[in-house]
């Protein structure tokens, strides 16, 4: 009974305007790579899903979205139940088939290469990865450049996938194919579309 409550509760209180708020934050982040955009807590999902990742899910997922979740999320009946009930998404076990990926543990995630990069004729049929992290005060700083960035942009997420710089260079080299990343922190999000280049890294 208690897990049922976890599943049915915690969705958007205003599905129309909350989704619009979260989408504008996402669009702002995607159009300005590395920019940190604040979003208040609008959803209350079961752990390990975070409020912001769940808000993004409720904004973008529905029966037309195939989603891959990492083991911590897919292994939790409360999490998959929440996602199914509030979004109606299609879950998949194969990262290469996913329109979206929900990742709670960035350190152990599969390589970016294992997700779908789209085809050269339809590069939009690629995976958008949603990475749950703590925030944007990490020790390492990436200096970003590319479309959406006026000169350059410093970006320090608290967690990054392993060998991230090498993986991102490979992702960038496949342009226009490639994956896009959304970093969901606590009340703050940022995005790295496939066009962004890492100019240098500073420790």
């Amino acid at each position: 009974m208690r897990s049922d409550t976890q599943i049915f509760e915690g969705g958007f209180s205003d599905s129309v305007l909350n989704a619009q708020t979260v989408f504008r934050a996402l669009m702002d982040a995607m159009a300005n790579p590395g920019r940190i955009v604040e979003v208040s807590d609008l959803a209350a999902p079961p752990a390990p899903l975070t409020s912001l990742a769940a808000s993004i899910a409720a904004t973008l997922f529905d029966h037309d979205a195939t989603v891959w979740c990492d083991r911590a999320i897919s292994g939790s009946a409360a999490c998959t139940g929440w996602l199914k009930f509030h979004t109606g998404l299609e879950l998949t076990g194969e990262p290469a088939d996913a329109d979206f990926a929900l990742i709670s543990d960035v350190a152990t995630m599969p390589s970016l290469e294992s997700f779908c990069r789209g085809t050269s004729e339809y590069p939009d049929r690629s995976t958008t990865l949603i990475l749950q992290i703590d925030g944007f005060d990490g020790a390492d700083t990436l200096v970003l450049e590319g479309p959406g960035i006026k000169d350059s942009m410093a970006f320090s997420p608290s967690h990054l996938p392993r060998m991230f710089v090498d993986q991102w260079v490979a992702n960038r080299a496949a342009f226009p194919r490639g994956v896009d990343l959304i970093f969901a922190g606590k009340g703050v999000l940022a995005a790295l579309p496939r066009t962004t280049r890492i100019k240098k890294t500073e420790a």
Binding site: S15, M30, D62, G148, P193
Partner: peptide, 25 residues
């Protein structure tokens, strides 16, 4: 709100995010 139903908005929003990620495509 804004005429379109929510499923249509989600579909368009997903397309907009992809469009921004692949400029000109």
């Amino acid at each position: 709100f804004a005429y379109l139903d929510e499923q249509t908005k989600r579909m368009i929003r997903r397309a907009i995010l992809k469009a921004i990620a692949i400029p000109g495509y």
